[in-house]
Design a binder for these strands. Sequence first.
DNA 1: TAGTGGTCTAGACCACGGT
DNA 2: CCGTGGTCTAGACCACTAG
Lengths: 236, 236
Amino acid sequence: MKIGPKYLLVKNFLKESIQQGKFKVGDFLPSEHELCSRFSVTRTTTRKALDELIKEGYIEKQQGKGSRVKERRKSLGLLTVKGFSEAVGKNVNTIFLTKPQIGEWKEEIIFPVKKEDKDAQCIFFERLRCVNSLPVMLERNWLPVTILQGFTDRQFVDESFFKTLSQEYLIEITGSKQEIRAEYADDKIAEILSVERNSPVLHISVLFSTNHRKLTIYSELFCNTRDFPVGNQYFM
Amino acid sequence: MKIGPKYLLVKNFLKESIQQGKFKVGDFLPSEHELCSRFSVTRTTTRKALDELIKEGYIEKQQGKGSRVKERRKSLGLLTVKGFSEAVGKNVNTIFLTKPQIGEWKEEIIFPVKKEDKDAQCIFFERLRCVNSLPVMLERNWLPVTILQGFTDRQFVDESFFKTLSQEYLIEITGSKQEIRAEYADDKIAEILSVERNSPVLHISVLFSTNHRKLTIYSELFCNTRDFPVGNQYFM
DNA sequence: TAGTGGTCTAGACCACGGT
DNA sequence: CCGTGGTCTAGACCACTAG
């Protein structure tokens, strides 16, 4: 039984409590001093745990008051289809074209697949995102099965892939790299997105890095941006 | 004379040294212990300083080796043409199609022009970015003349619009909002980007906010992504 | 083995928010 | 005033990297 650093104990306790709703958005966490005595650690350790939760966007601190659970930001500087973020759960729905299953690595998802990943089995799934029942975005994902045992049998939490990773496997996205092109829709993409062949579509390739060395996620998106442009906001 | 926390002393010393090129990309900073004795602080303090530099993207650490100066992310979550960031100053050049001058507001730059901006005079300029002498991106910018007196007569610092704003007017970009579409190139765009008419091109609309309430910048980019995709990196 | 960063202890004093 | 988080000290031991 391997036991990691103590601050992870504190961090994971808090994180799981938040994810399970024991602390809700706006609630204050126990004070640093209380966490110290509850876990028999010093403030350095407690603060390291809280620092990580801040970095991951779970909480915010306020001097003189405490640490409060925050609305989780999920933008990650990522591109999102306009309408998806604004109309969350409204007229948006997601259809699995291919459920998570053991599949094949695609040779090049623009970003070359790492050798260590290629040596592992590949989980593949494919989803179609619709707004008002109109197909808007095709999403394809490839990831190594390595540390995700049982993933193919699992239901997604709230239909969200990232939420599932976070809550079921304690995996957080730590970064991303994207490449974007405007391309002609080929026959298959045109059919899926209900556009004419050779229409211009947005092709986005994404490489996600996570807090697990071994887990890199490869994604590919095709978007019909005629009615729903892809957007991105950033605040300093 | 107000003096802040000690870790800022260490942090700012390192940050300025990096910015002034005293530590170059790839260089190792002095070790934590050395910084401790040089500034007469403990490791907690030194590490706090280094933590902030990591968060700001200046350095990265490696256990057993040291802290190394990193390629600075300047992305702002913004999209940049791949090749522009990698081949900085190499085979990249910028041509003014329209020098900064008083011009007309375009009715809709996808983002509606604020009324207060519309009431002010408009500075417009248009640049073509090339890689290996091939046109890759057309950039159009609109901004109110309000606080930028003399801007039309000014030379850009290092050919950079943002550097000019920062160094000559102390204006920093504080946020951005983007919308991205894949479109057919119309006649004019096709000619400028040297692509066939109706080729798919990337159309990016950007709204920049700055540390001056009165200054919002409206931009529009058209990219030929066949050879040079547009990219975006993000680190937490 | 020497040097680096990673984790941790057991304190201390200060700045801020609310009573 | 008290309780909160913010900063800081002076140590310690561990894990990783490289010669």
